[in-house]
Design a protein around this nucleic acid. Structure first.
Length: 464
RNA sequence: GUGGCUAUGGUGUAGUGGUAACACAGAGGCUUGUGGUGCCUUUAUCACGGGUUCAAUUCCCGUUAGCCACCCCA
């Protein structure tokens, strides 16, 4: 019991001793009385703020996404972040981890089950049916960028809210389409300066897979006693995953396992060969990976993933993936419609971009090479008007009118790396002039305010 | 969901059973008329909760979060 009593005593003693010196120090200003401690709000687990320091990376990715999609003639589409929960259950599949363990499902105010989208393909398929896009020229080629949500345990490169760039080509079953979709994703990553490997496989039709699965399970059953515990469990739950097992004892067994490519129907096999030929033609390097299976139920035939080598990060080296999903639209109640697409994780791509040019700190401001500084209350007021006037003429300057000292403003000008500073003080204000200072040489000239716009234009032109 | 490691200012790091040091960043000042240097001031209940102790930021337990591996995936 005694320790219980002591704790408060200690606190009571500690508080004044701590507050006392502080109060003594704050001579001039009246010391604000200690605020009672409040819990500061924190972002939810696995959810990240996008901060200004990362702005440039996002800009780069969004810009590239926009450009490359246009080049491949894909059009932008945006679907709601919230959908009926059943949409995802039907498309992604009951029994998949994404649906069973990771989906954010809520009850709407009217009691309906709604979900935060864990991926976008299902929504786009829904929109395709809902808006009769099949009656527009086929295939419908669309791209998107936006947040997705999965309730997973966070770690580096894996968040509960994350962003994907993806594209879908709906309405045509042709190896060219598969190749085009892969090329689009591949070139997006490459154009951002990242070396990536495309792993590719075919899982055939639903029937192919069923036949293969029986064979595969039969094979693993026969080796059951040699399998790892984890894989024993997978044998009933998700036997395809055993192929991806990282358990050492499984590896020799997996190597001997029947490969899905050998169980494909003639049709699927020739289709796959053609996809590969088109990839060769498009100059997209790829590697066959017979063990590649994807976690969503709707895939048929071609499946692929984009990997980055870069040494580190063993687990999160998959940047994204995709495949053909010829059954999805029909499954959702539309006409039987073939389709293919991919999705890429922007956070994962950003990680690599950041690692590539580390140390490059951004200072802020805009890109203008001119800083507008002011001194004195009247000049400040006038400065605001002048800056607005310049902006209307198409001349953008940097400034911080909240600063009072000239020194502080020139410090900023220096930090932003401008070439020239415009200075407006009391004297200039009376003369209707401003000073233009060359930041490199320190040479200053006095210019009539009316000619400021023209002068700055000259400077900006020279700078380029 | 399982296991492991970690937690010190805005950031990166020191450090100690007797309430914290350094660098950078931020704000203000030395100088309301001039930046890249200089100097000064300022910015931390050492994640949260509990326990052991005369005393805990330091040792122990729990929680939370981050990271790593697995699961899975982007």
């Amino acid at each position: 019991m005694s320790p219980r009593k002591k704790a408060p005593v200690k606190k009571a003693a500690a508080k004044p001793s701590k507050a006392a010196p502080k109060a003594a120090k704050g001579k001039g200003k009246a010391e604000v009385p200690k605020k009672p401690r409040k819990k500061t709000p924190r972002s939810l687990r696995g959810m990240k703020d996008l901060l200004p320091k990362d702005e440039s990376y996002w800009r780069r990715m969004y810009k590239k996404a926009d450009e490359i999609s246009a080049a491949y003639e894909y059009q932008y589409i945006e679907t709601p972040i919230v959908e009926e929960a059943a949409l995802f259950v039907r498309s992604i599949g009951k029994g998949t981890d994404v649906v069973d363990k990771e989906m954010y499902v809520f009850e709407d105010r009217d009691g309906g089950k709604i979900a935060l989208r864990p991926e976008a393909t299902a929504s786009i398929a829904r929109a395709y049916i809902e808006h009769g896009l099949h009656s527009t020229p086929q295939p419908s080629k669309v791209w998107y960028c936006g947040p997705m949500f999965r309730y997973d345990r966070p770690q580096a490169g894996r968040y509960r809210e994350f962003h994907q760039f993806g594209a879908e080509s709906i309405g045509e079953r042709s190896p060219v389409v598969d190749a085009e979709v892969i090329a689009l994703g591949y070139n997006f990553i490459r154009d951002l300066g990242i070396e990536t490997t495309v792993y590719i496989n075919s899982i055939g039709t639903v029937e192919d897979r069923e036949r293969y699965l029986i064979e595969l399970v039969g094979y693993f059953r026969s080796k059951r006693s040699y399998l790892s515990d984890l894989s024993k469990k997978r044998l009933t739950k998700n036997p395809l995953r055993i192929l991806d097992s990282k358990e050492e004892q499984d590896i020799p067994i997996v190597e001997e396992a029947p490969q899905i490519l050998d169980w494909l129907s003639e049709k699927s096999r020739t289709y796959f060969m053609q996809v590969l030929e088109y990839l060769d033609e498009a100059g997209v390097p790829y590697a066959l990976k017979p063990t590649l299976v994807r976690g969503l139920d709707y895939y048929t035939d071609t499946v692929f993933e984009f990997y980055v080598e870069e040494g580190e990060t063993g687990s999160q080296s998959a940047l994204g993936g995709g495949g053909r999903y010829d059954g999805l639209i029909e499954e959702l109640g539309g006409q039987p419609t073939p389709a293919a697409g991919f999705a890429l994780g922007l956070e994962r791509i950003m990680r690599i971009l950041r690692a590539k040019d580390d140390g490059r700190e951004l200072v802020g401001g805009n890109d203008s090479k001119i800083f507008f500084a002011q001194l004195g209350e009247q000049s400040r007021r006038r400065a605001l008007g002048m800056i607005e006037g310049l902006r209307r003429e198409g001349i953008v300057v940097q400034h911080n009118l909240a600063k009072t000292s000239l020194k502080a403003q020139l410090e900023l000008a220096n930090k932003y790396g401008v070439t020239h500073a415009v200075i407006l003080g009391q004297k200039e204000l009376l003369d209707g002039a401003v000073i233009i200072r060359d930041m490199e040489s320190g040479i200053q000239e006095i210019v009539d305010q009316k000619k400021l716009g023209k002068e700055l234009e000259k400077i900006l032109k020279k700078g380029k």
